[in-house]
């Protein structure tokens, strides 16, 4: 009898807790869904091929696009990747493999502090480091600012990913007579690779969505630009400019540009899924 009642009690608590979890899940989902819904409902109308390929047009003129901003974002994120991915992943691997000494501890501490620095501060730093010496705004400055943002988070993520590779795999490789460094690269990092690729793409997605560090590094540009020394448009700054304008026409464009940015970030996430899918059958 007692056993029965306690069993019923457990079942009730189980159901109750499951319900609470579902409720919180739904609550957490509301902001996400509302963002998607707002951006799609307000931005989808303006989507057209020309929006991706054309330059922005002056106020009042119909049409025009954010082609240069899309290109600029890809260009600067590409630059940031060139600088940030090797440094971030390299630092992470160093921390995981050799990070137990004084150097490792101080690097880890700095990475932790840096990953908490607001992006606008990173923008100021890039302004002082690159814009002032060059004398003008440039894509390089924007790329550097984004790279500085990427490096600390990427380093910490990579370190964690390499550290969770079981020591038994390293031992297995060493027991086969494989040299230490080769074991690190071919077995340990190889095993962590799918996670590292995901971390990289998330860092890239985050960089693509940054506005603050670009405002006074890359500034903006009304025209196509592929010269890294010139000011360059970006989607985020374009959204910012359109959104703060007093024109309804431009507000619509801000929504559409925001949708384009969401699409870019979404594609990056899908790419990370595809890239990290195991090529082996029956892999877990």
């Amino acid at each position: 009898m007692n056993l029965h009642s306690s069993f019923t009690y457990r079942k009730v608590v189980d159901r109750g807790m499951a319900l609470v979890c579902a409720l919180f899940f739904a609550l957490a989902f509301i902001p996400l869904l509302s963002v998607l819904w707002l951006v799609i409902s307000k931005g989808a109308a303006g989507l057209s091929w020309s929006f991706f390929t054309q330059l922005p047009k002056p106020v009042g003129e119909v049409g025009g696009g954010v082609g240069n901003a899309l290109l600029g974002t890809l260009f600067m994120v590409g630059l940031a990747c060139l600088i940030g991915l090797p440094l971030g992943v390299g630092a992470g691997v160093f921390l995981a493999e050799k990070g137990d000494g004084t150097v490792g501890r101080s690097v880890r501490f700095m990475a932790e502090v840096l990953s908490g620095v607001p992006s606008i501060v990173v923008g100021i730093v890039a302004y002082a480091l690159v814009v002032i010496p060059m004398g003008h705004f440039s894509a390089i400055a924007g790329g550097v600012a984004l790279a500085i943002l990427m490096i600390p988070t990427l380093a910490r993520a990579t370190e964690e990913l390499v550290r969770v590779v079981p020591a038994s795999l390293r031992e297995a490789s060493l027991a086969l007579g494989v040299a230490n460094w080769r074991t690190s690269i071919r077995v340990v990092i190889r095993t962590a690779m799918s996670g590292i690729v995901t971390a990289c793409l998330l860092a890239v997605a985050r960089a693509a969505g940054e506005t603050a560090p670009l405002l006074f590094t890359a500034l903006n540009n009304q025209y196509w630009n592929t010269d890294p020394r010139q000011p360059t448009a970006s989607l985020t700054v374009a959204i910012f400019n359109y959104a703060i304008s007093p024109y309804d026409d431009w507000h619509a464009k801000a929504w559409t540009a925001a949708l384009v940015l969401l699409i870019v970030v979404g594609l990056l996430n899908i790419a990370s899924r595809v890239l990290t899918r195991s090529r082996l059958k029956g892999a877990r």
């Binding site: 079981p166 038994s168 795999l169 027991a175 190889r190 195991s278 082996l280």
Partner: peptide, 10 residues
């Protein structure tokens, strides 16, 4: 080793 440790990526 004590626990089977095949390389998971292979």
């Amino acid at each position: 080793f004590q626990r089977p440790n095949p390389f998971p990526t292979m």
